[in-house]
Simulated assay, not measured.
Amino acid sequence: MPADPALVARLRAAGSVFAEEEADLLTAAAPSPAALTTLVDRRVAGEPLEQVLGWTAFYGLRVRVEPGVFVPRRRTELLAREAVAVSRPGAVVVDLCCGSGAVGLAVATHVPGVELHAADVDPVAVRCARRNLRGRGQVHHGDLFEALPARLRGHVDVLVANGPYVPTDAIALMPPEARDHEPATALDGGPDGLAVLRRVVAGAPRWLAPGGRVLVECADRQTVAITAAVRDAGLAPRLVHDDAVGAVVAVGVAADAASP
């Protein structure tokens, strides 16, 4: 049944590019006409559709997204895909700056038997990630590596981080639904966007197992700088691109204990 034309018109007037699709999703999510009005009011006010619906599709999964939590982007599926590709049953996998826990959930779903740990500095994100990862892994609250159990030091096989990488001056240029409704800690990467990712890469060698990998999402314009950071940390750098969605993942590989 086609969505209510008046609802479609209201969403389109509010700036929705995909008004028909959004109207269908909002209608399906609302248990009553009054609830639909509330959802539409939130969307028209600029709240991200995913937060209004309470979920988003990511890497073939439905991931819970609560108000105030960073919304997983489609381009981050490259990070998930690369993490899945290098994970094995029994591997220790850490998802730093986990937000909703989407990347960790993708790994735990597609590679059964991993030992998954996720962490975020934002308590709202931690609460959301715990709901998404219930029964799949442990979620810790704290700043990067400080949040992790000490016993993981030197034993992490795969370390992923979808940390903030937007330069501070560029935050004001972001769409209002991101700028106004997602936490600054998930967006603001400092003067050149790499303040947090440099900390992740620099700290990774102390936590990685021999042959372990750190994978971080970044922007194409940041690849030279992040590659230098990976190399400075004593890791072997590699870049993975997905031009279809404009995604870049920087990988750093620790030396294998068996290597000379």
Rank of each mutant, 00 (worst) to 15 (best):
A9R: 14
D24K: 15
R75W: 08
Y59V: 05
E66Q: 13
V52H: 05
R74H: 11
A14M: 11
L26Q: 01
V44M: 09
R62D: 13
L36C: 06
P48W: 03
V86G: 11
A34Q: 13
V86R: 12
A57D: 13
F58N: 04
L53R: 00
A57R: 14
V69D: 03
L26Y: 00
A91F: 12
E21Y: 03
A57H: 14
R75M: 11
L79R: 05
L53T: 00
L39M: 11
A45L: 03
T76F: 03
F70V: 06
T27R: 14
P31Q: 07
A57G: 12
R42M: 01
P89H: 09
W55Q: 07
V69R: 01
A91Q: 03
A45G: 10
L25K: 14
T37D: 15
Y59G: 08
R74L: 04
V44F: 03
R12Q: 13
G15N: 12
R88W: 09
A45W: 03
P72A: 02
A19I: 07
R62E: 14
A83P: 11
D24W: 14
Q51W: 09
G54A: 11
R10P: 10
E21F: 07
L7D: 07
T38V: 14
S16P: 02
S16Q: 08
F18T: 15
G15P: 13
G46H: 07
A9T: 11
S32Y: 10
A13D: 13
A45C: 11
L26V: 03
